[in-house]
Design a protein around this nucleic acid. Sequence first.
DNA 1: CAGTAATTGCACTTCCATTGCATTGATAAT
DNA 2: ATTATCAATGCAATGGAAGTGCAATTACTG
Lengths: 138, 138
Amino acid sequence: MQTIEELLESKNIRVTAMRLLIYKFLAEKDVAVTLSDIENAFEKADRTTLYRTVKTFEEKDIVHQIDDGTGITKYALCEKGCNCEIETDLHLHFHCNNCKETVCLTEHKIPQIKVPDGFVSENVNLVVKGICDKCSGQ
Amino acid sequence: MQTIEELLESKNIRVTAMRLLIYKFLAEKDVAVTLSDIENAFEKADRTTLYRTVKTFEEKDIVHQIDDGTGITKYALCEKGCNCEIETDLHLHFHCNNCKETVCLTEHKIPQIKVPDGFVSENVNLVVKGICDKCSGQ
DNA sequence: CAGTAATTGCACTTCCATTGCATTGATAAT
DNA sequence: ATTATCAATGCAATGGAAGTGCAATTACTG
């Protein structure tokens, strides 16, 4: 169990107040968030700073980007089971058509996808849309 | 074998010169196109008209929208094997990291994706990225 | 404590998607 | 045929998100 400071240092990222706050914000959310979500949570901070902080996290494999088809990029913390740098170890994402939230289904790996001869698969993005557990279970 | 006019009429869309031209343009492309692509092909026409024409086609299941992760919406004609209105009959899309083009792999159906209890799957979007046949086969 | 490099904030730009409104064009009724 | 009606088109403008340049600030190094 390492602290956030230790995590950032291990990735060669300077520890700043802003980064700690943004990391904590992401850590306490169990859904993927947009830049606007972060912006609303930190109205004092500048959009650009938030944008670049998230980009830095992304480069260092602290968060991963999610394209859930809404047209707005979302971000979520990479967790223990999420080896984003390994392209074959991608989990799927679920987008709820009801509450519009997107979650990582980390435990559900993407099955091997066959592509026609001549095509070389390097990466797979799989988004399942439907009704999430919170919205269906009432 | 029906004409384009008959197709449009069967979908209750008025046959106009613009729509015929745009349909033909889409029909002769074997890759998904952006609105800008269409715009470049029809410089005389207004962007809005092209936009709304494609939207109309989309509503009537003549074209389907593709989100290949580039952030730019692409469109492709629904073909015989493409029953877009039937959610369980979705094919996958392939985006080439080399030539940046996106194609529909209509013959490759998406395998059944299991989701956790409580989640209800209604729709699946699968984009495979890599190198396409044209770019790999030289 | 000074010097260097990275981080932050502000202003701006670009690109795509989308809408309002006036005008043109096509269908239906007289 | 002529007009009335409604859809389609074109023009202008807006909005949202992503991204960049530069100056000011903050954090590390010696």
